[in-house]
């Protein structure tokens, strides 16, 4: 049975249209023109308990707005939501007990307090049994390496340290569902890896259902099997990441290094992607041209000192979808 379900979920923001300048500000006092914007425009999705789903989309696509509605802090304009059999915005307090939230852009820790005291406050808010609290805390201190700065005021922590603290804070009450909105933003590679490991464990060992938004597709590659892609408030893809790769990862790149200088480089069956000095990148559709044939043609025409074939990474796949839009059966229309 689905743990999270939305049907035709919409959120329309209404804001006062502003005209520039003092005149505009004065005019706005008397007559207000409103602008409407559908940030989320008919999203229907369903998550099973224990799933870890990547929720992707370009800036302004409506990801954070969706998450805010799922947490119950934003009331939908229309459509329905059910999270663990509750309607989040109607049963905010009950729903809050079930969920954990990490917003990479903000912290839920108390700025003036050391982590230890923030955690104690959270224990009391969520009414976590003391025994369970201690178990969880010990566990998180160990795997997130919080020991050194448990007694430092949060204000003095580095971003990476604070983020680890935030993760522990969001999980102390054993939430069934966790929403992560850009949780790795601004972190270095080591910290990102630690966070990813933590998320994996949470999902595997505790069976926590997780929705993750991120602009770092390495997060998705590493963590999610299923992705939901949205753009302009609507879902453009929902399925396993492997399908995305199959449908959109049809282009490979042949990278050749020229041993001589040539003016124009052209190889039949491939498009020039870029050229930097002697390094030339050629894009080709693997279903139309074989790598072997392409290499042969290139070697016939040019003297080469190096050859490599680059497989498309999820980054370039998603970049392409953001740029061109997603069309079912993109396979048939190589560009």
């Amino acid at each position: 049975m689905a743990i999270i379900e939305t049907a035709d979920l919409r959120k329309v923001f209404r804001s006062v249209k502003r005209r520039p300048g003092v005149g505009g500000a004065i005019a706005a006092l008397f007559s207000r023109e409103y602008e409407e914007k559908a940030a989320v425009d008919g999203i229907t999705m369903s998550l099973e308990a224990g799933e870890l789903v990547g929720y992707l989309g370009p800036n302004g696509a409506g990801k954070s707005t969706t998450i805010k509605m799922l947490t119950g802090i934003l009331v939908p304009t229309s459509g329905s939501i059910s999270v663990a059999d509750l309607v989040p915005h109607r049963q905010r307090l009950e729903n809050a007990q079930n969920i954990g939230v990490v917003f990479g852009q903000r912290s839920q820790l108390y700025w003036d307090l050391p982590l230890r005291e923030s955690f104690a406050l959270l224990r009391s808010i969520y009414d976590v049994p003391r025994e369970r609290f201690r178990e969880n805390l010990d566990h998180f201190i160990e795997i997130l390496d919080l020991d050194e700065f448990m007694d430092t005021p949060v204000r003095q922590l580095s971003l990476g340290e604070r983020m680890r603290g935030d993760f522990a804070a969001a999980m102390l009450h054993d939430p069934k569902i966790v929403y992560l909105d850009e949780p790795t933003i601004g972190l270095d590679v080591v910290a990102k890896e630690a966070i990813r490991e933590f998320i994996t464990q949470l999902n595997r060992e505790r069976g926590t259902t997780i929705i993750l938004t991120t602009h770092d597709l390495a997060d998705i590659e590493r963590l999610a099997r299923r992705v939901i892609l949205i753009d302009d408030g609507t879902i453009i893809f929902d399925g396993p990441i492997s399908r995305l790769r199959e449908e959109y990862g049809t282009h490979r790149t042949l990278v050749i290094t020229l041993a001589d200088s040539y003016e124009d480089v052209q190889v039949e069956g491939a498009d020039l992607e870029s050229r930097e000095g002697n390094v030339v990148r050629l894009r080709f559709d693997r279903r139309r041209t074989s790598a072997e044939a392409l290499i042969r043609r290139a070697m016939e025409r040019y003297a080469l000192s190096d050859i490599a074939i680059v497989e498309p990474d999820i980054d370039s796949i998603v970049r392409r979808i953001y740029r061109e839009g997603y069309t079912e059966g993109a396979i048939g229309s190589p560009s």
């Binding site: 119950g72 809050a96 969920i99 939230v101 917003f103 903000r106 808010i125 969520y126």
Partner: peptide, 13 residues
């Protein structure tokens, strides 16, 4: 001001 009230509302309080 700083928008942190959003997080206050995600807690059961």
């Amino acid at each position: 001001h700083d928008g942190s009230i959003v997080l206050d509302f995600t807690k059961p309080m």
